[in-house]
Write a protein that binds this DNA or RNA. Structure first.
Lengths: 110, 110
DNA sequence: AATATTAATCGTAATATTGCAATGAACTAA
DNA sequence: TTAGTTCATTGCAATATTACGATTAATATT
């Protein structure tokens, strides 16, 4: 059905999967890495930087914005995007807590 | 087109997005958390634990196995799954390196 | 051998995602 | 005003994902 049954999982599990999902496309990873890398805010050059069509980039940016990971600022005809550092930090904590689990090797059968 | 143009991204970006994608469903997050939590390997009780049909769980397990994050061991009629700790660690490094980027707040316009 | 148990696979329906051409909206420059 | 720039939105086609019933394969039990 292509639809996750979110109601049967915890809020934490759903939150983790939502964050992970947005990182589940290399274009969005590339956009975020670019936003981290450059010293100033990026404006329109993401299209030439990434190599996808403008509507496609716009759509990816929308998803990143929806989750609060980036902010957009209108500057004349162009829009300036950058990482929302506060929300990025919150996301990071959630994700790292999930990733950083330790295995009790005690009775590992595999 | 529903298909990521992986050839235009770096190996690292593709790797990150592949790992992230597998965490992009709450059932797989739940399966992994359960495998971490229990002291011994889970076998068939994931179906009752998670609450999805057996073929669905089996499919999710297959994806986790494909990425190397879990291992499966046949034990009679049942199969015993557990975290592949070595690969989990490798994945963790890749993901944390991506998540742990710092923002140069210098000329942040937003 | 006959039956039961467990999990994988197949087939299929429903929905989601990705990508882009075309268009629209907002501003700028001439 | 007119034309240009930049980015968002719409609409659509192609593909992917999710879920599960039905079936199959493999082993256990009787």
């Amino acid at each position: 059905m292509g639809l996750a049954k979110t109601e049967m999982f915890t809020d934490q599990q759903n939150e983790i999967s939502l964050f992970a999902k947005v990182f589940g496309h290399p274009a969005r990873v590339a956009i975020l890495q670019h936003l981290f890398k450059i010293e100033r805010c990026v404006c329109g050059d993401l299209v030439s930087e990434i190599g996808l069509a403008q509507p496609t980039i716009s759509q990816h940016l929308k998803e990143l914005k929806y989750l609060g990971l980036i902010k957009g600022n209108v500057e004349g005809t162009s829009v300036c995007y950058c990482i929302d550092s506060e929300n990025w930090l919150k996301m990071k904590e959630v994700m790292i807590q999930f990733l950083d689990q330790d295995i009790s090797e005690k009775e590992n059968c595999c």
